[in-house]
Amino acid sequence: MAAMTREVSGQSDIGKMKTEPNGAYKRLEASFRDVIAAGSKFEPEADRYHLYICYACPWATRTLIMRKLKGLESIISVTVVSPRMGSDGWAFANADDYPGAEVDPIHNVKHIKEIYLKIAPEYSGRFTVPLLYDKKLDTIVNNESSEIIRMFNSAFNHLLPADKAALDFYPEKLRSDIDEVNSWVYPDINNGVYKAGFAATQEPYTKAVHELFKALDKAEGMLKGRDYLVGNQLTEADVRLWVTTVRFDPVYVGHFKCNISTIRGGYPNINRWMRKLYWNNDAFQSSTNFDHIKTHYYWSHAHINPTRIVPEGPVPVIEPL
């Protein structure tokens, strides 16, 4: 493929990731931002769209959870990549046959980066998942998880049974409250663990880790005596916070130095809420693969963990109800 002659290791190799001049980590914006909507170029149709995910990635997992919550399994197909992200980025099973990884059924390529470069040869961003692909037009629709979950929430309702179509995880009456929660959960918790973990100097790490735990304190207070963050019902706000908290004790405490406290040891309300969603809702449990989660972080970030040893704990990886 001609596009692959260009040097792209800076986009695929996490070890070559650049930080800000002061050592702080800054996440790049997603680049593909089209929307599946009736009357648009991307009509909502069954078996037209394909989702590429990694079980390890919290951003990808929130799209997988929403797909299952809405009953879209037969409408949107999925391929899982290996959790081991090497110098070429996310790999399919024909490049790394890790248990649970799959071969790309559309392009039969070895790495996610090849799909990006096939569609956009001059693409300069990172080769990320989730990646929502249109099989009909043979192009990328979107790689921004917050937008993909909104599409999954409502765009395909006309194709779903009435009970699934009626489920709304971003209801009009709660949108301002959901947006407000998202406004601090994303920068301080979802991305906050990365700002701490990928910091290259002490000062930005210290700042990020204290902002993270201040935000966790806020979420802990919100969940006192409650099963959900907003409106006494499951919303996208829960999905978005949950994918970080379920990885917290197995990965972020040790690997990303977020060790002021564990969830199980310091946040009883978050821990209860997290466990109830995991054990009582299959969309959460079946979208969570702790082996892939732990293997990805400890194996892939050799600049943080050069031995690539994957820790055995915590035991249990998530506590029972």
Rank of each mutant, 00 (worst) to 15 (best):
D134G: 09
F198V: 00
V141L: 07
S145F: 02
D97C: 01
G192H: 07
V35N: 12
W242C: 05
N190C: 11
H107I: 00
A38M: 10
T61V: 12
D217A: 06
R226G: 00
V209E: 02
W242A: 05
E180V: 00
M222N: 01
L229C: 07
G231Q: 10
D217C: 03
W279Q: 06
N157P: 00
Y297D: 04
S287N: 13
K135L: 08
A199P: 02
F32L: 05
S261V: 05
S146W: 07
L117W: 13
N157D: 13
S154I: 07
S145C: 02
A199L: 02
E114Q: 11
S176E: 13
I36E: 14
S82D: 10
T63I: 10
G313V: 04
I178F: 09
V310H: 10
D47M: 11
K16L: 15
S87K: 13
K41I: 06
Y116H: 01
E29W: 09
N232S: 11
M4Q: 09
A162Y: 06
L241C: 09
A24M: 01
S287F: 12
N271Q: 12
Q202T: 09
T262F: 07
F213Y: 10
L117R: 14
D168H: 10
V185P: 01
W273T: 03
S183F: 05
H210N: 12
N143K: 00
A37K: 15
L64E: 15
E114C: 00
Y297P: 01
N289Q: 08
P121S: 01
M85D: 01
N182F: 14
A24I: 02
A24Q: 05
V181H: 14
E144P: 04
I14W: 15
S87H: 09
L167Q: 14
L51F: 03
A38D: 15
E43V: 05
T201G: 03
F32E: 03
A199H: 02
K207H: 02
L72K: 06
K118T: 08
F284A: 02
F169T: 08
V246W: 12
D177G: 03
L229F: 14
N191P: 09
P187L: 04
